[in-house]
């Protein structure tokens, strides 16, 4: 091999090496068939282009031009009647035959369904993860929850879950006074609790303010007497009477599940409904994670 070829292939090797290095540093699983085929394709591009073009460029160094000239000459340009390079001709024939075979008998054009393939992919996923998800312990759930949160929820709630200065719910605390006051004033009927709707104006004026302050403060200290109006549904401890109405003290699984499923429009803005786009395990994981966010 001559120097040019070695330099060329070295370049190809560096390119491929760098690609694999970067991909690996992102923790990518190259044994995934799609990833693997793409990587093989990349190698083929680099090696074949460099190899073949340098092979011909080398002929500029070593070979001499020649052959029988055609009669014509255009503006002084002649044309040899040389045969086509056999490697090229056979490759072409080869790809043409391969194409025919592929479309007619190998993978007949009407025999593939991308939707069918998606179904299989999902099924394979389920068998792989179902067991693990069933038995996930608390620590696993929190970790799962974190990665789901970062992909799905962080664009609104921020990567730290602080709600991006009031643009969405701040998970480091429960609710602000303004949020509670808004609910008291307008009532609410969107989360799908067994208790149904919360009526508006259960408290007014100073009462409402006291209640809001109390709830926003994490329901610590002395409970205002007016909170009795709320306790009938949310319980004296504000925990929502075992899932009958929202827990006002923390982000339990029922609350997160209901909000994620149904969405929520409140004082801060609107949160979209995910309907059935989250599995029960994912909801569990999310609430486990969100509960770790509260700052003390």
């Amino acid at each position: 091999m001559n120097a040019l070829m070695i330099k060329g292939l070295l370049f190809a090797a560096i390119l491929i090496g760098a690609t694999i290095y970067v991909v690996n540093s992102m923790n990518i699983d190259l044994s995934d068939p799609i990833n693997m085929i793409a990587m093989i394709g990349a190698v083929a591009i680099a090696v074949l282009t460099v190899g073949v073009s340098i092979k011909y460029i080398n002929q500029m160094k070593t070979d001499t031009a020649g052959g029988e000239l055609a009669d014509e000459s255009w503006d002084g340009i002649g044309e040899y009647k040389n045969e086509v390079p056999s490697g090229w001709a056979y490759s072409w024939l080869g790809t043409a035959i391969w194409a025919m075979w592929y479309m007619i008998s190998g993978y007949p054009v009407n025999a593939f369904s991308q939707i069918g393939q998606w179904n299989e992919e999902v099924k394979a996923y389920n068998t792989k993860f179902e067991e693990m998800h069933k038995t996930a312990d608390a620590a696993t759930l929190r970790q799962m929850g974190e990665s789901i949160f970062l992909v799905q929820c962080a664009p609104c709630h921020g990567t730290t879950g602080d709600g991006l200065s009031g643009k969405a719910q701040d998970f480091t605390s429960r609710m602000t006074e303004a949020q509670v006051l808004a609910v008291i004033e307008k009532g609410s009927n969107q989360l799908g609790y067994p208790m149904g709707a919360m009526p508006p104006m259960m408290a007014t004026g100073q009462d409402a303010k006291d209640i809001a302050k109390y709830i926003a403060g994490g329901m610590k200290g002395e409970q205002p007497a007016s909170f009795a109006a709320c306790a009938s549904c949310h319980g004296a401890d504000g925990k929502g009477m075992a899932g009958m109405s929202p827990n006002l003290t923390g982000y339990d699984e029922t609350l997160v599940g209901n909000v994620v499923k149904n969405g929520k429009k409140g004082a801060l803005g609107r949160m979209p409904a995910y309907h059935d786009r989250m599995t029960p395990v994912q909801v569990k994981a999310l609430s486990a994670y969100i509960q770790t966010l509260k700052g003390e």
Binding site: L15, A18, T19, V22, V23, M26, N27, I28, D29, D32, I34, N35, A38, M39, A42, Y125, K128, F129, M132, H133, A136, T140, Q143, M144, S147, I148, L150, V151, A154, P155, Q282
Partner: peptide, 23 residues
Amino acid sequence: WIAGITQGMMWRAVDEYGNLMYS
């Protein structure tokens, strides 16, 4: 080339629990 391959693979990547690895 490196950017594209990296990005394409990151979009597909899942963590050990089967959830998307990257936002």
